[in-house]
């Protein structure tokens, strides 16, 4: 099931389900301004308690601590009901901020959605 995005400037480019896995494709810079929408959409997804949530960041060039906070919140919410969050296509700039914040070890990261789905 794919939910097309009615707002082309949206931080959430696409949300779809494949074999019980929810996949969110994010795009653009994620800062204090755009993380608000990211959080709303992630909480919406998490309310359905998917077993696995894959967040595709391959089209995200920049993320600040507000975006990180949203990822951590999603991860903690999913753990609460026994789910998991996986990150896909993390770009170097985003990887750097995950490393600086010592959060790179708490998120499973994969090169592609296929790899994340197979794991």
């Amino acid at each position: 099931m794919t939910r097309p995005n009615s707002n082309p400037g949206s931080v959430v480019e696409n949300i779809r389900r494949e074999n019980g896995v929810t996949i969110l494709v994010l795009a653009g810079d994620i800062d204090l301004h755009r993380s608000v929408e990211m959080r709303e959409r992630l909480l919406e997804v998490m309310s359905e308690k998917p077993e696995t949530t894959v967040i595709n960041l391959s089209r995200v060039d920049f993320m600040d601590s507000s975006g990180l906070a949203t990822l951590v919140e999603a991860m903690q919410l999913s753990r609460r009901y026994g789910g998991q969050v996986k990150l896909v296509g993390v770009q170097q700039r985003v990887r750097s901020i995950l490393e600086i914040s010592r959060l790179d070890s708490i998120f499973p990261m994969f090169e592609s959605e296929a790899e994340a789905l197979a794991s």
């Binding site: 600040d64 601590s65 990180l68 949203t70 951590v72 903690q76 901020i97 600086i100 914040s101």
Partner: peptide, 14 residues
Amino acid sequence: DLNEVRPGGLGVHI
């Protein structure tokens, strides 16, 4: 403290 994994409070550290 970064050992505490929780949302927020990372800006100054960064």
